[in-house]
């Protein structure tokens, strides 16, 4: 196999090219932050998959797209053409991976925070391998708009989900009782005076009472993000541990930056963040990050 003269070896090292089982064939992984893409880009990917690949695409678990079956000799041309169309190549290896998110409050009726916008901001700021940020292993971040956690924040190295604290304006309550039957946590019971009583200890801040209330007597006291760190899947799955509740959305980037610094300073080569936290301690991580 001879190297095409124009291949950019430095660019290859940033990842996104995955050797396939077949000789000389590669898959090109595209960077699709928060799984959001315009129809024209999707059409262009389809066109290039037929031109350079075998016409097949793979939708990855992290909401990305891989063009399969690209011969080694065509990689550089395919890359150039993708980038000319405004598409970007994905990362693999020990890097800050593409940020995933659900559609969030901008689209989903359940959304409490704009997970998509937060995910795009994090991706722009941290993606790949910024200067001075050689990481021990891969690093995955996700944003979920609500407590349903569809994009699995507890399975990422750092994950967030939206949450909301309700407060009752008693004068506006018509005593219908819908919040009591809607609350999946059993955190609300109707009192003798036909007013709902919330049990703070059982409340998970999902906002179902606010959404269901016909008179808007349940109102938003505060909205924020629950932050988790150290989650991973793979051979030895472990759920992330809670770092904080009600992080202000504008502080989310600071949390990511703090955890990245902790991981870079304390992590051993080849270990995921969760293993580092288990060794150094969640308390120490919180002390440095919060």
């Amino acid at each position: 196999m001879s190297l095409p003269k124009t291949i950019d070896l430095a660019a290859m090292k940033t990842g996104g090219l995955i050797k396939q089982r077949e000789k000389d064939l590669f898959a090109i992984r595209l960077r699709v932050p928060v799984g959001r893409m315009g129809a024209d880009h999707l059409r262009k990917i389809g066109e290039l998959a037929k031109k350079y690949g075998n016409g097949m695409l793979h939708f990855t678990v992290r909401q990305g797209i891989e063009i399969q079956g690209v011969p080694f000799a065509d990689i550089q041309t395919a890359r150039d053409e993708l980038e000319a169309a405004g598409l970007r190549i994905g990362a693999c290896g020990p890097r800050f991976r593409v940020v995933t998110a659900c559609p969030g409050a901008a689209v989903c009726p359940n959304g409490l925070v704009d997970a998509g916008a937060l995910g795009l901001e994090a991706d722009e700021r941290f993606y790949g391998q910024p200067e001075g940020l050689e990481l021990p292993h891969k690093f995955k971040v996700t944003f979920a708009g609500c407590t349903s956690c569809c994009p699995k924040p507890q399975e990422n190295d750092v994950g967030f989900h939206g949450q909301v604290e309700p407060v009752l304006f008693e004068d506006e309550c018509n005593g219908c009782g819908i919040c009591e039957v809607t609350c999946k946590e059993g955190a609300i019971i109707m009192g003798d005076d036909d007013l709902p009583v919330r049990n703070e200890a059982k409340c998970i801040y999902c906002g179902d009472c606010i959404n269901s209330c016909p008179t808007d007597a349940w109102k938003v006291k505060r909205t924020g993000l629950a932050a988790f760190a150290g989650g991973r899947w793979g051979r030895h799955p472990e759920l992330g541990q809670k770092l904080a509740d009600f992080v202000e959305p504008e502080k989310a980037m600071d949390i990511i930056a703090g955890v990245l610094k902790f991981y870079k300073d304390e992590g051993k080569r080849g270990e995921r963040l969760g293993v580092t936290i288990n060794r150094v301690g969640l308390t120490e991580l919180k002390r440095r990050v919060l």
Binding site: P109, N174, C176, G177, I178, E180, V181, S212, C213, P214, T215
Partner: peptide
């Protein structure tokens, strides 16, 4: 509720 009607009792 999102359609604008009112729940009176459950």
């Amino acid at each position: 509720k999102e359609e604008g009607h009112m729940i009176l009792k459950v």
